[in-house]
């Protein structure tokens, strides 16, 4: 009996260690993603960006974290205190929970479950609660408007995003992320990005909208509603929202790399597959997020809704039908 408990204990400890091995590097990536964002946008706008703390400003994210840690957290009057503090946790928990099923290479995965893709979709759709609750609990007009905008946007783009994933799983015949990557074996030509190119574009644009990033950042449109749903948050509570946004950016880029760009598989057959390929692909996609922010003006809200419902959803449906029909023809090998 005692041995059984001991086994459970060691197994739990082992899982906790694995979680730490995923979450700690993720924290570090988030910190340096904010640094790169400021640097990249700075260069694009002929500025220098942060360059005071450490060499080339490399310690800037750490200085920022320190500053936020020592700031006072203010609760607005007549706010719902409990929900006010639960909201940031509800935002960041799904952003990290989704990483449980992400495979980093053929063996390196925390939970290798059958319905991995569905699990990730469910987790990303739960993240909207943090935003809604933050807006409501703040007892502030701007925060409430921001959260309403964000909720409508996330729910709309989730549908288009879900349909693009249907295309992927039609090609891969599996919901397991590891199997989806394994289906793209054999060089760049086998990646799903080619037969599903329109879906890839739609997925990526929807991903930008899902994470509330520019040019779809009406949820926190500075010029209209100050900072949107997190306008009343300060100190670490604000930092947690910030962390969740960047962790979500990395997550959706990781998913795009796994599902469309062959994950850890090498683009050419004479080089070995490696986790480094995965990181390179994710970094490449993340750069687009920063590039978009520096380039595009903010979308108007009704146009965001129109793009999601009237353009993306019909387009994905047509392409799914096309893939389904092609699979009944002699050309079906193109789609596997």
């Amino acid at each position: 009996m005692t041995e059984g408990w001991f086994n459970i204990f060691t197994e739990a400890l082992w899982i906790l260690l694995k979680i730490a091995a995923i979450v700690l590097p993720l924290f570090l990536s988030v910190a340096y993603l904010t640094y790169f964002e400021r640097k990249v946008i700075g260069f694009m706008q002929s500025r220098i960006g942060p360059n005071r703390v450490g060499y080339f400003g490399l310690l800037q994210p750490i200085a920022d974290a320190f500053k936020l840690m020592f700031k006072e957290i203010i609760t607005p009057t007549e706010s719902s205190r409990l929900l006010f503090f639960i909201a940031p946790i509800l935002t960041i928990a799904p952003a990290f929970a989704a990483w449980a099923v992400i495979p980093f290479n053929a063996e390196l995965v925390l939970a290798d479950i059958n319905a991995g893709l569905l699990y990730v979709l469910a987790m990303t759709s739960v993240a909207v609660y943090g935003v809604i609750i933050a807006g409501w609990a703040s007892n502030s007009k701007y925060a409430f408007l921001g959260s309403l905008r964000s909720a409508a946007q996330i729910v709309s783009y989730e549908i288009a995003m879900g349909f693009t994933l249907v295309g992927v799983l039609m090609c891969a015949n599996s919901l397991n992320l590891g199997n989806i990557v394994a289906g793209q074996q054999g060089g760049m030509g086998q990646w799903y990005v080619w037969p599903l190119f329109p879906l890839f574009i739609i997925y990526f644009i929807s991903a930008v909208a899902e994470t509330n990033r520019a040019p779809f950042d009406v949820a926190e449109g500075e010029s209209e509603i100050v900072a949107g749903f997190h306008v009343e948050y300060s100190g670490m509570a604000f930092a947690v929202f910030f962390l969740a946004e960047y962790a979500n950016m990395i997550l959706v880029s990781m998913l795009a790399a796994l599902m469309f760009l062959g994950g850890w598989l090498s683009p050419v057959t004479f080089l070995p597959d490696s986790i480094l390929w995965l990181f390179a692909k994710v970094a490449f996609l993340l750069f687009f997020f920063l590039w978009f922010r520096a380039t595009f003006p903010r979308y108007r809200y009704d146009q965001i809704m129109r793009l999601g419902w009237k353009v993306f959803i019909p387009l994905t449906l047509v392409w799914i039908l096309f893939v389904g029909l092609m699979m009944q023809t002699p050309y079906k090998d193109m789609f596997h």
Binding site: L118, A122, S125, I154, V155
Partner: peptide, 25 residues
């Protein structure tokens, strides 16, 4: 029944209840 479980979270929690909250708020 992992499909049913995740579909419940995805559909009801992720979409239906969000719209519910929207109205209730």
């Amino acid at each position: 029944a992992e499909f049913l479980a995740i579909a419940l979270v995805l559909v009801y929690v992720g979409a239906v209840m969000v719209l519910f909250l929207f109205v209730v708020m």
